[in-house]
């Protein structure tokens, strides 16, 4: 934040400091006023009563609903991120392959799965697995598969732009010592690109975690659905959903902080560009040119992380 001040403002003089202080007080009053209005309105509708909040803080609420729900969320997210990394490495390497057919096919796969809404994929796989009686947990599998296909495609783009962002000398050096193109990619470019990608990967984990909540729509018992089942039984959905949202916010905020720290930590340790992604999904340009230094990951990544 402080770096931005220097971009936009001079060090304020006495008059400007007074104005800023005044603005600060007015701003704080407006923000607090809005917050107070919301709280007052909630109180007027009886939403702050302990009858509604109390059940949320019982042992049973956590033992039987929130914790098992969170376990399911983490389980789906864990399998999905590992699968997505594998998928991303395969198709990312595919997009860098020598053969034009492989490049083209990988490109079509990646662009396709990035354009289709994850929810549509989840519903499709859920019904497909259900109708064909595959697996005992069609909802879990559908969540994982859909998340792998989408996030794997995003990671494939990260791999491609990560390799593209390496200095050219790296691959030239590999070729110069007699490695083939594939060997150079495997032993020189990918390892460095992967290290450089780590922060973006952690950011992608935030996307995966958030998207597991879509599983609620196909009856996967994740955190949101658990909160909803519990809330429906007690007529306090506002309260239980707030708790579920808070759990997500804390975890994702922690992950984002890890991503920022990683990107600072790693920036001196690799020749690739390290940046945390924006956490919305498509961090790279869709009709992508192989990422130059000015590509969108770097652009949307939090500037304080660079």
């Amino acid at each position: 934040m402080s770096s931005q001040h220097s971009v936009l403002f001079d060090a304020p003089g006495p008059r400007a400091r007074r104005r800023i202080a005044l603005g600060n007080v007015v701003g704080a009053l407006v923000v607090l006023g809005i917050a107070a209005l919301v709280v007052a309105e909630l109180a007027r509708k009886g939403q702050l009563s302990w009858d509604l909040w109390g059940p949320v803080f019982t042992a049973s609420a956590w033992q039987d609903y929130f914790i098992p729900g969170l376990q399911n969320t983490l389980r789906a997210a864990g399998f999905a991120i590992v699968g997505a990394v594998v998928f991303g490495l395969v198709f990312g390497a595919g997009r860098l392959a020598r053969s034009r057919t492989v490049r083209w096919a990988s490109g079509v796969v990646v662009e396709f799965f990035r354009a289709v809404p994850v929810l549509l994929m989840m519903i499709f796989f859920w019904l497909l697995l259900g109708f064909n009686r595959i697996g005992t947990e069609p909802a879990f599998l559908a969540v994982v598969i859909a998340l792998i296909l989408y996030n794997g495609s995003v990671i494939a783009e990260l791999v491609r732009s990560g390799v593209g962002n390496l200095p050219k000398g790296q691959s030239e050096a590999g070729l110069a010592v007699g490695l083939t193109g594939g060997q150079t990619l495997r032993s020189i470019q990918l390892p460095q690109a992967l290290i450089a990608m780590l922060p973006a990967l952690v950011s992608q984990l935030v996307v995966v975690l958030k998207d597991t909540a879509l599983g609620q729509i196909i009856t996967y018992d994740e955190l949101l659905r658990a909160a909803q089942i519990f809330g429906n039984g007690n007529g306090n959905n506002l309260q239980t959903l707030t708790i579920a949202a808070l759990v997500f916010i804390v975890i994702n905020w922690a992950l984002t902080s890890v991503a920022r720290w990683l990107s600072r930590y790693l920036s001196g340790r690799t020749s690739g560009a390290t940046a945390a992604g924006p956490g919305i999904g498509n961090p790279t340009v869709v009709a992508g040119k192989p990422g130059g230094p000015g590509n969108a990951i770097a652009a949307t990544g939090d500037p304080s992380a660079m």
Partner: peptide, 17 residues
């Protein structure tokens, strides 16, 4: 390590002990 973490973290059963 990731695989281990996954294995250690089984699924939960919402609402059921």
């Amino acid at each position: 390590l990731t695989a281990l973490t996954l294995a250690a973290c089984g699924g939960g059963e919402v609402g059921g002990g």
